[in-house]
Design a protein around this nucleic acid. Structure first.
Lengths: 195, 195
DNA sequence: TCAAGATGGTATCGAGACCATACCATTCAA
DNA sequence: TTGAATGGTATGGTCTCGATACCATCTTGA
């Protein structure tokens, strides 16, 4: 028997801090702050309903004022483009430029983790991931906040056969690519967590 | 079959951010910054070799100058006491005051997590914890940084029968309480990670 | 139709974390 | 005993972040 009495939460927080530290290093090496790399990463992974300053603010847990500043900085650096929405002229639509896409790719990658993760037995890693996914879903529902999950795990997600999907909230059709993106309207199903 | 293709690292980071967010809320509710609560929590859990500004700076990954500022603030608020070491008069020994102990207790507690964690099947949580512990040990060794693990999981830890332990590095005897504290000299055993 | 509120975003200011640099005191090593 | 290493402080600057106030646009409802 081994002696790891370390509770699960402590481990998650320690690993999270470690990863955040590495991300921080890579961000400053790229001339950005960690939060800016997070923003770029979000824009790379969010869907078409979620590429606005307000959605980003909700995702990051920051005020819209703070996010507005960061976005201006990112635009000055030529990493994102901001253009008004056609339908609602209050709204800005954010998009990565080619430079932003490239930077998000390089600065978003972690150097040491893939190897360490690959060294874990696959079934063990999968089991741990399943457990953590349940925990995450529980926590997000319990806190009542937005969950920002991928589209395909959403309560409103409908499969219409083949590669055809639809969002039950907006009614719009979705492609296979859309279904893997982060959505600000995401809501976990009622009963089960991540099943 | 469920569709959680979410990789383990993403989950760890999401959960870490969620927990950090809750810690942040509780910290500001207590009139402190998150890093200050982290400092108090560290001082509550570290052993007698590790209660110095430099050790805290290493633990938090901050410069000693930054930590010096924070410690002055915490002393002004009456949450910690700083007194010079008897043997080495460069060194300051840090200790929580009664108020600091109380605040670390209340602000360090997370509200929603215990219930969510308890809702997980015990064997599943243990298995996930074991996996994450291995991952953490691997990452810390790989990055060559200090690990700040609990004394009992250290390479230098010696069990001398009953409740008698000893640190193989300093040679000093350790009680059962000591062996659960965070040590700045902590080093994982060579071969296995957390076994 | 039009006023009132809701929503998305910006401008500006202050607080404070954080780092870099320079510095002092003490201990340790040659 | 001199020089390097270590522990800590002081200071100035950068930058995040929140609060507040503000403007523009959309929505709702009487």
């Amino acid at each position: 028997m081994n002696e790891q009495r370390i509770p699960l939460l402590d481990l998650v927080e320690s690993l999270g801090r470690l990863a955040a530290g590495e991300r921080r290093q890579r961000a400053v090496a790229a001339g950005l702050q960690p939060v800016h790399v997070q923003a770029l990463d979000y824009l790379r992974r969010c869907n078409r309903y979620s590429n606005t300053p307000q959605a980003l603010a909700d995702y990051l847990g920051l005020t819209k004022g703070t996010v507005s500043q960061s976005l201006q900085l990112l635009e000055r650096k030529g990493l994102i483009a901001r253009r008004p929405d056609d339908a609602d002229r209050r709204v800005l639509r954010l998009a990565l430029t080619a430079a932003g896409e490239a930077l998000a790719g390089t600065a978003g990658e972690l150097a040491e983790w893939p190897a360490a993760l690959a060294a874990l037995p696959a079934d063990e890693a999968d089991a741990a991931a399943a457990t953590l996914a349940r925990l995450l879903a529980t926590m997000q529902r319990r806190r009542g906040g937005q969950s920002f999950g991928a589209c395909h795990s959403c309560r409103h997600f409908r499969h219409e056969g083949g590669d055809a999907y639809r969002c039950g909230l907006t009614g719009e059709p979705l492609g296979a690519d859309d279904s893997r993106r982060i959505c600000r309207e995401h809501a976990w199903p009622e009963a089960a967590a991540a099943d």
